[in-house]
Amino acid sequence: MSNGSLGWRDIKPGAVVTEPGSAAAYKTGDWRSLRPIWDHTRCVKCGMCELFCPEGCVFQNDEGYFEADLSYCKGCGICARECWTGAITMVEEEE
């Protein structure tokens, strides 16, 4: 059901929201105009990019490298700015 079609009968008492973390359904990735790219030759897998991500959308993949979940990444570039080995660059999103 899309949010716009909720009727008053669909509202729980007190308009309480009982599904934790349900806002994850809202993808903020389309806010982005820049995208982070990791250079694995420079990455030391320290995880500073993960820690400094305001979205909490940087994660460690099976190989131990970090990447951003692009469905949420807003492209702020803090990860690139704070990466002390310079492993991350921000590139323009193409249309």
Partner: peptide, 11 residues
């Protein structure tokens, strides 16, 4: 605005 009225009606 898309949901305030529904919430108040439910109340």
């Amino acid at each position: 605005p898309f949901i305030y009225s529904e919430i108040k009606r439910a109340q």
